[in-house]
Nucleic acid binder design. Structure first.
Lengths: 241, 241
DNA sequence: GCAAAAGTGTTGGGCATACACCCATGA
DNA sequence: TCATGGGTGTATGCCCAACACTTTTGC
């Protein structure tokens, strides 16, 4: 192989970031999707929020930009977890046509770097989505997505478990600032996909100095009111140095 | 922002793969490096083996190609672990000049996808390196590398621990086909950077049905000969399904 | 008073840790 | 016989899993 061969065989590549943004509504995990409209032929489907990267930004910056435009969040703990570069990922002509129209680029290949983030589903986040055709969709109700975004999403769910085992603080990003132990337990059960014993759970949380009980209780519930707790990140960092 | 702005602000990107190939000589971890020679000014330094990707190959294929050309290995369990795309990674003029000469491309940005692999240091691997200016270097003796390859390498060491905790079989890729428990223990001590109690270790390995004792012992050593063991991958996969 | 979810302790088994001496071999 | 590293068993504490009843509240 001569150098010239090398030159001509190099792909005309583009690089993008895609964000898997997870939210938790107290019952289920949801993911943030944006809708995409084809022009000529009539169709409309969903994809993960993402963007090609600009010249003056790092990968992490590009991902942060996407998330900020969509949700307004600035420090959402975005973490890169995998690059997707199969040459098959742009094999659907719809995807290529859409890209070339929307981005005005000639597409041979797009390698995308996938990021994952966990956010609280409060009004500030759920509010400003309309302008972007964005919505939250429970992960078990996500239909076919553009490109290989279904693959990216399903691998993100595995990543979530891996990351959460390595750093349990991540899951508190999904919970409201004040939460009950039942909420916390349900979240754990969803993420790890197994039942958690109530008493053992209370015992374990009791030992976590960074989960602090508040003098505040649920109101207006038709049963004994649950106590609220909060996550103390400073204490957490001190403990796990 | 108009579509035209978007167009002009997109980077002229290139995508590469870099491989952190780890080997174990019984005492220390080594990493496979290739040397690089600058032309005009005189210098010679080292870098991780890597390559730009070609049009007709996936990321994984590109990484496999690099590894195969260098070592002849085909199924070395290469795993992607991170993408590096900081705009600063090509800030050293030497790196840019070298790239443009060697690859005949105009370089604005290179995003690289880092892979890690664990291989046995037997003759077949250590043999065929000469033609490529490649060598094994103990990880704690690695000097300054090109680009951000020192960063990539140091993050690979962390990844190794994470991956090995999730899937202990990885470490057997580093050991010879027949190994003593002392070798295995030393490897664990290196990877996890802590002392392991000899008796507890024997007990634990005894419980691993997939580490099978052979009727073979060391010869010619100036002390009691150690028994050899082998790793039974089938049994391992059966157990950890 | 009843339905619905919150909260609370004890026990047993398994697993990791700590620890010291004898064995086989070549020089 | 000595120096070197190989191989072996027991006792302890900790963490995890299993398990059922009482409390509070709104209706």
């Amino acid at each position: 192989m001569t150098p010239n061969d090398t030159y001509t065989r190099l792909a005309n590549n583009h690089i993008s970031v895609d964000c898997v943004v997870m939210g938790w509504d107290g019952e289920r995990l949801s993911v943030l999707l944006v809708s995409r409209h084809g022009e000529g032929e009539e169709y409309s489907d969903m994809k993960l929020p993402g963007s090609l990267i600009y010249q003056d930004e790092d990968l992490d910056q590009a991902a942060a930009r996407v998330l900020k435009e969509l949700t307004g969040l600035e420090n959402a703990g975005l973490r890169q977890y995998k690059a997707y570069g199969s040459k098959n990922r742009t094999k659907d002509p719809r995807d290529v046509i859409w890209l070339e129209r929307a981005q005005k680029i000639h597409v041979e290949r797009i390698v995308t770097i996938a990021y994952i983030a966990f956010v609280k589903l409060d009004r500030s986040v759920t509010g400003c989505l309309d302008g972007y055709n964005a919505l939250w969709r429970p992960v078990d109700e996500v239909g076919p997505l553009a490109f290989d975004h279904n693959l990216i999403l399903s691998e993100a769910l595995g990543q979530m478990r891996t990351m959460a085992s390595a750093d349990p603080a991540l899951l508190f990003d999904l919970l409201p600032r004040k939460f009950t132990l039942a909420q916390m337990r349900t979240l754990f059960e969803t993420v790890y996909d197994r039942k958690v014993d109530v008493r053992n759970f209370h015992k374990k949380v009791g030992a976590m100095t960074y989960v602090v009980p508040l003098d505040e209780y649920q109101q207006g519930v038709a049963h004994r009111a649950a106590r609220f707790y909060k996550f103390d990140r400073k204490a957490y960092n001190r403990q796990r140095r």
